[in-house]
Computed example of a mutant assay.
Amino acid sequence: MTLLSLSDLSVTLRNRPVFSGLSLEIAEREVVGLIGPNGAGKTSLMRAALGLIPAQGQSSLATLTPEQRAKAAAWMPQAREIAWPVKVEDLVALGRLPHGDRASAPVEAAIAKMGLGPLRKRRATNLSGGEQARALIARALSQETPLLMADEPTAGLDPAHQIATMEVFRDLAAEGRGVLLSLHDIGLAARHCTRLVMLAEGQLLADGSPEEVLTDALLARGFGITAYHAQTPDGPVFQPMGRAR
């Protein structure tokens, strides 16, 4: 089942073309990593897909009403400001607003998945940056939407919580949901995403499995880097090594 369909999508911001002619589909049971250099348009793509910024072309989510969209896709933006000193458990429960309830089971499941049990009674504004990120991911999880979209969800997390968070996303996909993430850590993307989409040069440069996208040629063209990659008994290892010559 297709959860997001983009057709010939183009975005121009401040009179500067960001990308053009982009077509993409996200299906259930996928963890799609959106990768690319700074300024390639990863955030703009997700915001345009949600109808949050002007765009040309078609997005299946942008055509929905706000109420319908809130039940179809959960969104975690890159900015993680928590304005009010609410308890962590109350912040997570805000994910239930589109459903008009405070059902406890999804909230408790989200708190457990993100390891927030010991923090649930603390004021969210008193948490560290990484803890706040985990609380906001939990809020998105409690929304229980078919599609979860997150912009740099692992930024600011320590390595253990980065891995745990990516494992949560893989579990969501295994349950039949879909996940679209923008990521700068290509090593995490290679290990945990079922599919990668590379944005560069104002276009969708590559779309496929991590093995198909993280080739020497595409890494040099899209990021200007060389990298070491290998298959191990514990899964793929990917490490940027230097700038491409």
Results as ranks from 00 to 15, higher is better:
residue 78 Q to D: 04
residue 108 E to C: 09
residue 139 R to W: 03
residue 78 Q to P: 03
residue 182 S to P: 08
residue 152 E to R: 09
residue 172 L to D: 06
residue 75 W to A: 04
residue 111 I to E: 06
residue 97 L to S: 13
residue 117 G to T: 14
residue 118 P to H: 10
residue 93 A to G: 06
residue 179 V to S: 01
residue 142 S to I: 03
residue 172 L to F: 00
residue 169 F to S: 00
residue 114 M to V: 01
residue 164 A to G: 07
residue 177 R to F: 01
residue 80 R to S: 03
residue 157 L to G: 02
residue 115 G to D: 13
residue 121 K to H: 14
residue 179 V to Q: 06
residue 113 K to R: 15
residue 106 P to C: 01
residue 134 R to H: 09
residue 132 Q to L: 10
residue 164 A to I: 08
residue 134 R to D: 09
residue 175 E to V: 06
residue 191 R to S: 11
residue 167 E to D: 11
residue 96 R to T: 00
residue 100 G to M: 03
residue 154 T to H: 08
residue 164 A to L: 10
residue 123 R to D: 12
residue 183 L to V: 12
residue 76 M to R: 12
residue 101 D to T: 12
residue 77 P to M: 05
residue 100 G to C: 03
residue 132 Q to K: 15
residue 171 D to H: 13
residue 109 A to V: 04
residue 95 G to Y: 05
residue 90 D to L: 08
residue 156 G to D: 08
residue 178 G to C: 11
residue 92 V to H: 00
residue 87 K to W: 00
residue 90 D to F: 03
residue 105 A to T: 09
residue 120 R to Y: 00
residue 138 A to L: 11
residue 140 A to Q: 07
residue 185 D to P: 03
residue 81 E to T: 11
residue 175 E to S: 12
residue 125 T to K: 07
residue 169 F to K: 04
residue 143 Q to R: 07
residue 144 E to T: 11
residue 82 I to S: 05
residue 111 I to M: 10
residue 112 A to W: 11
residue 79 A to K: 11
residue 151 D to C: 02
residue 136 L to R: 08
residue 147 L to E: 11
residue 82 I to L: 14
residue 191 R to P: 05
residue 154 T to M: 01
residue 101 D to S: 10
residue 155 A to S: 15
residue 97 L to T: 13
residue 111 I to L: 15
residue 96 R to V: 04
residue 184 H to E: 04
residue 133 A to Y: 01
residue 108 E to L: 13
residue 181 L to M: 10
residue 104 S to M: 13
residue 167 E to Y: 01
residue 172 L to T: 01
residue 142 S to A: 15
residue 111 I to H: 06
residue 139 R to G: 04
residue 103 A to I: 00
residue 162 Q to N: 00
residue 103 A to S: 15
residue 168 V to S: 05
residue 127 L to W: 07
residue 189 A to H: 04
residue 160 A to C: 02
residue 75 W to Y: 14
residue 188 L to E: 05
residue 109 A to S: 14
residue 120 R to A: 03
residue 171 D to K: 05
residue 95 G to S: 13
residue 146 P to M: 14
residue 120 R to F: 03
residue 81 E to V: 12
residue 93 A to F: 06
residue 166 M to D: 05
residue 185 D to S: 09
residue 182 S to K: 08
residue 162 Q to G: 01
residue 154 T to L: 01
residue 157 L to S: 08
residue 137 I to N: 00
residue 92 V to I: 14
residue 108 E to V: 10
residue 93 A to S: 07
residue 148 L to D: 06
residue 94 L to S: 05
residue 167 E to M: 07
residue 119 L to Q: 02
residue 192 H to T: 06
residue 117 G to S: 12
residue 106 P to G: 03
residue 131 E to D: 06
residue 151 D to V: 03
residue 88 V to A: 04
residue 166 M to C: 11
residue 130 G to W: 11
residue 183 L to N: 08
residue 93 A to I: 00
residue 190 A to Y: 06
residue 146 P to R: 13
residue 143 Q to K: 10
residue 111 I to W: 02
residue 84 W to M: 08
residue 169 F to C: 02
residue 124 A to M: 06
residue 85 P to W: 05
residue 191 R to Q: 12
residue 77 P to T: 04
residue 90 D to S: 08
residue 91 L to R: 02
residue 111 I to K: 08
residue 139 R to Y: 10
residue 94 L to K: 07
residue 106 P to Y: 03
residue 110 A to S: 09
residue 141 L to D: 10
residue 149 M to R: 08
